[in-house]
Write a protein that binds this DNA or RNA. Structure first.
Length: 501
DNA sequence: AACTCGGACAACCGCATTGTT
DNA sequence: AAACAATGCGGTTGTCCGAGT
């Protein structure tokens, strides 16, 4: 570990400002040695935890207080569990993350002996693994944590706050529950954008998440986040869109709350319709943006739906969950395999790369664009060869795209590693089967169905670059899906899927 | 055997929050 | 109230190691 064994530069090390450089002793960085550990343990035994900046003074350690605290908290303090997470712990992490998002410290509080860093590392690794495999993150039977649409004081830091205040609010009415499997059919399509549920409004702002894949942590949206704030953020990223993005896009008639809450309707996509508590928050912005994917795409964090056991149920904030609650919930809802039995979930709603401010940050957006360009080229070639693609209706296009997604899902379901165990009825390619239930809702204007209605010319709003970018991307993807499907299946999307026994 | 890749892990960094003076 | 320090937190990076090729 030579390279990291270095002496920190006092000028850049924040620890310096913590006062540990008073004596002029350069602070060591990099891995800790056992000798240093001993010194730190001795210090804590003598002086207790805290006052970390005094460690250097009293123990002779050439480490900044911050580093000491971290070392102690993550490695030296007693009662730390070492070793791999148990399946139970993994399950709990998943559950907690579905409720809290990337609140590692809070999650750690629910996992005695585990550190936030451990959990974070585990999660990030898992995210990477699952995304690489195109798998969703959460079990299908998690649905959104209750959300209080009337929470007045949410602010930017209230990503998902379990403050007492909010706890109270959560306990009192206006808490929504979301139907399970509401994200069924959504697909983390190899890093491509997700397709909006046909019944869901899909605003440009939604499509432009805050972090998305830009972060290594794949910070998905937390649906409980104040949607106004989310919208504001997205609008911040798109200043030209500030004059009401929601009003500029085709609107889906908002369902009444009573209509929406218990609804679980599979879309032609296989997306169950969900209620979206964010809608009301978006009202000031010119209209409702329906659909879970609105909030899924809005900001960086992400939470999964939680199981619904009734049309509406009130739930405690996670910190008020007794472990037994979680455990029972887990036992009754979670698939046996904490990791590998996930079916489609909100994670499938891949937020479109959102690093508008620094599009180069992750490179994923570029990759997406590049792929889109390639697909576009391919599309052009294909369109020259086959004129039939031009007769596709928008709905067909969507359906086809969905079918393509589902096809990928089918592959995932047959992934010998993932070993999905979800019932077929929950699988994402219940698209055809879901037509029946989808008929319960009058289909909105097909133009609203189209995920690519982002291409609507009304959404220029001055930002032609991004409009063009997204338009090309989405269009290319959709058309590529069409083309691919046409090549593969002359008889229709659904026929592509082998029967699942 | 050499190489690549991905997972696991440790540690750092920067910012936010909280406490103290 | 303001400034500063201490602490906490989340994101990111770097390294090691084992598996696969």
């Amino acid at each position: 570990m030579g390279p990291k064994d270095k002496i920190s530069s006092p000028s850049i090390d924040e620890c310096v400002s913590g006062g540990s450089m008073g004596g002029g002793t350069p602070l060591k960085k990099g891995p800790w040695t056992s000798a240093e550990d001993s010194l730190l343990v001795d210090y804590v035994q003598k002086h207790g935890e805290g006052n970390w900046n005094a460690v250097q003074k009293y123990s002779g350690l050439s480490r900044c207080g911050k580093s000491c605290r971290l070392r102690w908290a993550n490695h030296l303090r007693p009662n730390l569990k070492k070793g791999a997470f148990t399946p139970e712990e993994e399950q709990k992490i998943i559950e907690l993350h579905s409720q809290m998002g990337n609140k590692w410290a809070r999650m750690a509080a629910h996992l005695p002996g585990r550190t936030d860093n451990e959990i974070k590392n585990y999660w990030n690794t898992r995210i990477k693994r699952r995304l690489r495999a195109g798998l969703p993150l959460y079990p299908s039977d998690m649905c959104l944590h209750p959300y209080n649409e009337n929470q007045p004081g949410l602010n930017a830091s209230d990503d998902f706050n379990y403050d007492d205040n909010h706890s109270n609010e959560l306990l009192h009415g206006n808490s929504f529950n979301f139907p399970g499997h509401m994200f069924d059919g959504m697909k983390v399509s190899q890093g491509l954008i997700s397709y909006a549920s046909p019944l869901m409004g899909f605003s440009p702002g939604n499509a432009i998440g805050r972090q998305g894949f830009g972060s290594q942590n794949y910070n998905f949206l937390n649906p409980t986040m104040n949607c106004t704030k989310q919208l504001q953020e997205s609008e911040t990223l798109f200043p030209h869109v500030q004059d009401g993005i929601a009003s500029r896009i085709p609107q889906v008639e908002p369902l009444s709350v009573s209509d929406r809450i218990p609804l679980k309707v599979h879309q032609p996509f296989g997306f169950p319709c969900d209620s979206d508590p964010c809608n009301k928050d978006l009202a000031p912005y010119g209209g409702a943006v329906n659909g879970s994917h609105a909030h899924t795409l809005l900001n960086g964090n992400f939470s999964a739906p939680r199981p619904i056991t009734g049309s509406v149920e009130l739930e405690l904030p996670s910190l008020q969950y007794p472990d037994t609650d979680l455990g029972s919930w887990s036992a009754s809802h979670a698939p046996p395999d904490p990791i590998d039995t996930y079916v489609q979930s909100p994670s499938g709603t891949m937020s479109l790369q959102s690093d508008v401010e620094s599009p180069r940050k992750s490179g994923l957006l570029e990759a997406l664009i590049y792929e889109a360009q390639m697909l576009g080229n391919e599309k052009n070639n294909l369109s020259e060869k086959s004129s039939s693609s031009s007769v596709f209706t928008p709905c067909e296009a969507v359906e086809s795209a969905a079918a393509n997604i589902c096809e990928a899902d089918y592959e995932l379901f047959h992934d010998p590693i993932s070993q999905h165990t979800a019932p077929i009825s929950e699988n994402p390619f219940g698209a055809a089967a879901s037509v029946e239930s989808s008929s319960q809702l009058a289909p909105p204007d097909p133009s609203s169905w189209r995920p690519d209605f982002l291409l609507d010319s009304s959404w220029h709003v001055g930002n032609t670059n991004y409009h063009s970018m997204f338009s090309n991307t989405i269009e290319s993807l959709l058309n590529a899906d069409l083309s691919a499907e046409q090549k593969q299946s002359p008889v229709g999307p659904s026929s592509k899927f082998p029967k699942v026994d």
